[in-house]
Design a protein around this nucleic acid. Sequence first.
DNA 1: TATAAAGGAATGAACGGTCATTCCGCACAA
DNA 2: TTGTGCGGAATGACCGTTCATTCCTTTATA
Lengths: 200, 200
Amino acid sequence: MEKAEKCDKPDKCAEKREAIIQAALELVAEQGFHGAPMAMIAEKAGVGAGTIYRYFENKDDLIRWIYKNVEERFVEVMMQGYPEQGPVRERLVHIGTALVRHLISEPLQLRFVEQFHNSPYGVDHRREKLFGETRKDIISDLFQEAVTQQIFKPLELAILFSLFFGPLVDICRDHILGFIKLDDALIEQVVGACWDALRR
Amino acid sequence: MEKAEKCDKPDKCAEKREAIIQAALELVAEQGFHGAPMAMIAEKAGVGAGTIYRYFENKDDLIRWIYKNVEERFVEVMMQGYPEQGPVRERLVHIGTALVRHLISEPLQLRFVEQFHNSPYGVDHRREKLFGETRKDIISDLFQEAVTQQIFKPLELAILFSLFFGPLVDICRDHILGFIKLDDALIEQVVGACWDALRR
DNA sequence: TATAAAGGAATGAACGGTCATTCCGCACAA
DNA sequence: TTGTGCGGAATGACCGTTCATTCCTTTATA
């Protein structure tokens, strides 16, 4: 393993912190929490076991920090280029395709989030539906508006979310595991199918 | 904790075995694998820690045995009263409603299966889509037939499965967690929405 | 500039706790 | 008495975390 870069210019040795994060993300995503003991994370990051505790209070802190950042990245991606003034269908298709494209381009992030949700860490996150508040606010607005305008079936938000995001996340997992091969055309077909499920 | 019944009449002390299974199922479902050490399973079952090893080779064996049985139960439930000669829509609705009704009446089974899938145990199960071969065979036939008859969108089976089963499992989880309250009418509406997603 | 002292950062062996599994003595049926 | 099933303390492996020590950079001094 190479020595980490020196702390030459940047205020702090942010590279080391980044290496720890990346190592933890990869190990948890690929092996689950059981396969990601601190010693292994340290080795993969090329640092001593104790060093991690200079950057993170404990393992929980490390894991939650990564989760939070991955989550924020999801929101960012979905909101980038969001056609705020467009028709409902266009906005929904934007969100769906942006999410799917991101998830399959960053399979580690999807796997990490899934591991997180089904672990002791995710227990207290149960009360937050899907991917956090920011997203929930903007997307809830979209769904709510569509229900009010009688574009969507008159169902609760939680159910509409399941109908839309459930299959999308599923197909990303299938793509990552090699069961199917998604391309832009196929993504649009599936997003279209989810639209059909929501539509009145 | 009460002493377990004696081995009076039945060939073997099947009650003890059953108690162990039930205890493990509940603990894993409610607390995850981290919250289900062998000692705790033993205590909850009212047996000694070592006794478990008289009935199961090791923890893996116990967990996999439970998983296999729960899985078989799912297939059983979906196939009970399956209208083999009915139209596609009727058969699909039967499967969907039977599955949802079972999952919400046996929340521990759903939680257990989800814990299993996201754990080291589930790693080698990845290659089996959804709930095992029996179901896959019969249900694959149904979906395949619907595609051939141009009732469904021309998509791969894996994607059609995600569109149909993904939201159904999601809403069951939401129901169990108390986010929504499913009743027969609502179940039928959601199954109907999933049908719309599949439909050409 | 050369040298030395200081202090923050990094290390990894060691610790305490937990877990799956084993094993030996006990109680009861035959 | 003999044998079988059982219990639960004992065992050893593993993991998160700590801390005494080392390393390295910076600063002070001449």
